[in-house]
């Protein structure tokens, strides 16, 4: 009995040690960024100083500089509104498509679902050159709108795939009951199915927004003016003047962007995992 108790306690300790090590390995750079953001120059630019603690009093100057003297807020605003519009376009297009593929039982829905999935395999690095010509042709070069136009090509395939998973998790009886109650097929979809799939929609919104905020190649290739850039290209290209990096401000920007996204994502992690499971495994 005692032996079992010892074993259980050591297994518990093992779990905690593993969890703490994993958390530190993943988040370590961010914790360090947080300290660095508040460092004085004389503290930071001395290779003999301990980089993980304040060797001189902390200063908020560089963080204030980020928010008042750089275009950081403009970048953040651009990322936000591009993200919101892209998510809206994605939902409007992907939700009906996913429903058609998951429920309306056409003979071609299987192959088409696979085809949409495969679009994910034609990545930005293959398309950015020709798309940049397309963007020029439409007259959207150097405009944030070019990103609104192009990003749904990344988010629609993944979202259709995830939403199909959530839709398959809803019993068919519910639509059939709604249709018996006098709704049309379309009405049943809007009134009965969409409310039930709402958790899935939220997960897709978060996922699509995360993908949009992280995208780098298109933003770098299409948009050059500072005031049109999103965070992902604005921060690494505009907070650097020649060879001079505004290091503390850069670290502050990383933390300021990282924390809210990870926070929201974590809220929906379980739903997201559930969506993956239903979509791919119980296909």
């Amino acid at each position: 009995m005692n032996r079992y108790a010892v074993r259980r306690v050591s297994a518990r300790i093992g779990v905690y040690v593993a969890a703490i090590v994993a958390a530190l390995l993943c988040a370590g750079p961010f914790l360090w960024s947080l300290v660095t953001a508040f460092k004085q120059n004389r503290d930071l630019y001395d290779p003999t100083n301990n980089p993980f603690v304040f060797n001189r009093p902390a200063t908020p100057d560089h963080v204030t500089y980020l928010f008042t003297d750089t275009a950081f807020l403009t970048f953040t605003w651009n990322t936000l509104w591009v993200g919101v519009l892209v998510v809206l376009i994605t939902l409007v297009l992907a939700l009906p498509a996913a429903y058609a593929l998951a429920r309306l039982d056409r003979p071609w829905s299987g192959p088409l679902a696979v085809a949409i999935f495969l679009v994910y395999l034609v990545p930005p690095s293959l398309l950015f050159l020709s798309l940049s010509r397309v963007v020029v042709a439409i007259g959207l070069q150097d405009s944030t709108w070019s990103l609104v136009l192009v990003y749904p090509t990344i988010t629609i395939p993944v979202s259709v795939w995830l939403l199909m998973g959530f839709l398959k998790g809803i019993p068919r009886d519910i639509e059939e009951q709604a249709m018996v109650d006098g709704y049309s097929r379309l009405g049943a979809f809007v009134r009965a199915v969409i409310p039930l799939v709402f958790p899935g929609i939220v997960a897709v919104v978060v996922f699509a927004f995360t993908l949009t905020a992280s995208e780098f190649i298109y933003a770098l290739a299409f948009v050059a003016p500072t005031e049109e850039m999103p965070v992902s290209t604005g921060v690494p290209t505009q907070l650097v003047r020649g060879d001079v990096f505004f290091w503390q401000s850069l670290q502050a920007a990383t933390v300021a962007v990282a924390v809210p996204i990870a926070f929201v994502f974590n809220l929906f992690l379980d739903r997201f995992v559930a969506g993956f499971t239903m979509g791919s495994v119980k296909g």
């Binding site: 994993a22 958390a23 530190l24 993943c26 988040a27 750079p29 961010f30 360090w32 960024s33 660095t36 995360t210 905020a213 992280s214 780098f216 965070v231 992902s232 290209t233 921060v235 690494p236 990096f245 290091w247 850069l250 670290q251 920007a253 990383t254 962007v257 990282a258 924390v259 996204i261 990870a262 926070f263 994502f265 974590n266 992690l269």
Partner: peptide, 21 residues
């Protein structure tokens, strides 16, 4: 979970900048 998710949910260009230093 929150700490573990950070590397993936952060825009890659930003986390790479942290690594640059």
């Amino acid at each position: 979970r929150f700490l573990v998710l950070l590397p993936w949910t952060t825009p890659v260009a930003l986390s790479s900048i942290s690594w640059l230093w």
